[in-house]
Design a binder for these strands. Sequence first.
DNA 1: ACGTTGGTGTACCATCTGGTACATGATCAG
DNA 2: CTGATCATGTACCAGATGGTACACCAACGT
Lengths: 185, 185
Amino acid sequence: MHKPDVRQELLNAAIDFVAEHGLADLSLRRLATELGTSHRMLSHHFGSKDGMWTAIVKEVERRQLATFEDLEPDLSMSLQDVLRMWWRHISDPSLWPNERLFFEVYAQALHNRPAMNEFLTDVVESWIGPSVKLAEAMGVPPDTATKYARLGLAVTRGLLLDLLATQDRAAVDAAMEHWIALITD
Amino acid sequence: MHKPDVRQELLNAAIDFVAEHGLADLSLRRLATELGTSHRMLSHHFGSKDGMWTAIVKEVERRQLATFEDLEPDLSMSLQDVLRMWWRHISDPSLWPNERLFFEVYAQALHNRPAMNEFLTDVVESWIGPSVKLAEAMGVPPDTATKYARLGLAVTRGLLLDLLATQDRAAVDAAMEHWIALITD
DNA sequence: ACGTTGGTGTACCATCTGGTACATGATCAG
DNA sequence: CTGATCATGTACCAGATGGTACACCAACGT
């Protein structure tokens, strides 16, 4: 264990905590205590409080993009089934803390919080790109895919917000099923 | 000017400020300074800091619901035009600060912030209800309206998030137009 | 005229905040 | 072994925070 990369371990633990409890009004000292270390260590490894938040935000961005990599597009599946698989994957309760954190960072970035300025620049494009690519791989014409991608992203995020707030799995799943039926009639 | 209801005036001014600048990591003293008063006054009129945030959140909820009242459903219009009018209304830049604040409160409520616990209970239902009522008034069958309402809410909020982040009016409007075409084909 | 009520200002408190100077200890290269 | 590097711990700082005690004053009912 020469280099356990303590910084990375601290970062992972920190994200787990803020994903569960939020990052608003969170002090370095409180976070450090929750992580079993001291605020002195967080300052040391991340430079400052802003450095800490910046690192967290970057990791949140990275995890968001990684969501796509977890998905293996099986070309033998129907388009409907790929969409269903995608929704089942992204709406899994194990991802809820990450998604709560995603929306919190999103909202704070909308208010020009210092550490989150760059978050918005790719928050839409970085999803539309892979979506279109996936759709094209499934045989959807490029212009059609582009037309649906932005709307599909809105549906996904809107229904996620709904699910996180109401936890009404049946109703939200039904709405997604309705969406899938609408675009693959 | 016997009772200018200084509390309500302070609350309105406070909401204008937090809508523009966010409420995370905002201290009573900073807010008071921005409002031209002292933190002593905010404590006096709202009881405590939590009382202040609670009052703000309740007002945000109230304003959200009031969005529907601004809309006059003209039964001579086509369903498409009503939807377009609704989107033009709710996506107007003058409402952006309120909507940024709405999403910030939403995100913080997802993390069980003390003053925002009750925010989530009606955040979906309170929109679906009026939506269904409006759709029925336009002649849409009740079960169809219910089926579309939840999905339509997700589309609206998802595209609002997109618009607030990218400010790409043309692309987001096109996506909404695509949605309207999908459900009114 | 008088007392009451309630908005406002001043001043203070204990606590917490982010940051840092300094010391200690562990690991590793030479 | 020795020196260097880096993670960690202790202790402190100046500033900000939420809250509050107290005094003051204007408006009001009587």
